Simulated assay, not measured.
Amino acid sequence: MSGRISVCSLNTGENEQIDAVFRLCKDKRCVIYGTVIDEFNAPVADAVVKLLQVTGCNKTPIPLTHTFTDRYGQFLLGPLCPNKKYMLKIYKDNITIRYEQLNANSYEGKCIGVSTSNNNCNTECNK
């Protein structure tokens, strides 16, 4: 998913129709869009979806933000930095928690995340 939201102002004249074309700049940030379903493949409404960033070997993931699923079980989180590892935690009453590490690629601009400048992990940890 790329593109950047832009804002513009325009004034309309009397009895005028405006045919507008908007060109969005390239944006390399990413989003996570998903659906939470139960064991019967039914959407899970109002589940909590937490976004955490995995910052290195044997470190506790850092909570970044959260959202709730809509009535269709859908959620959206972002914008995310490229080349960072993320984890989702999903909670809903008796729903089992699933841990998933995610890799996001490409980025220009601000995003949700923690800046990490030192990655001295061994190669086994980065797999």
Rank of each mutant, 00 (worst) to 15 (best):
K110M: 08
D46N: 12
L77K: 01
P63K: 10
V48C: 09
E124Y: 04
C25M: 09
C25A: 15
C125K: 02
I62M: 12
C57W: 05
N83Y: 05
T69P: 03
N11D: 14
I90L: 05
Y33E: 15
K59D: 06
C8F: 10
Y86H: 12
L102M: 09
Y72W: 06
P61V: 13
E108L: 09
G113P: 01
P82H: 15
P79Q: 12
K84Y: 09
P79W: 14
Y91I: 08
K127Y: 04
S2V: 05
D38Q: 00
R71P: 00
I32V: 15
N105I: 14
S115W: 04
L77F: 01
N94M: 13
D70T: 00
E100V: 11
K110L: 14
H66W: 08
A20I: 11
R71V: 08
G73F: 08
G13M: 11
V44I: 07
G78L: 03
L102A: 01
M1A: 08
N126G: 03
V48D: 15
C25R: 13
Q74T: 14
E16T: 11
P61E: 12
F22D: 06
A42M: 14
N41V: 02
A47W: 14
A104R: 00
T60Y: 04
K28F: 15
K84D: 14
L80K: 02
F75D: 09
I62W: 06
G56S: 07
F22R: 06
T123Q: 10
S117K: 06
K127I: 09
L52M: 12
F22N: 10
L88V: 02
K85P: 00
C30V: 07
K59T: 11
C111Q: 01
R98P: 03
D46A: 10
T96F: 11
G13K: 15
A104G: 03
G78K: 02
K28R: 13
C57N: 09
V21Y: 11
N41M: 11
M87W: 01
S106R: 09
S106M: 08
C81D: 07
Y72H: 08
I37E: 03
R29P: 00
A47G: 14
P63S: 10
D19K: 01
K50L: 02
L88K: 00
L10E: 07
S2L: 13
P61K: 11
T96D: 15
R71S: 09
M1V: 06
A42E: 15
I62Y: 13
K92A: 10
T123V: 09
L80N: 01
N105H: 13
Y99V: 03
N58T: 05
E16S: 14
T12C: 06
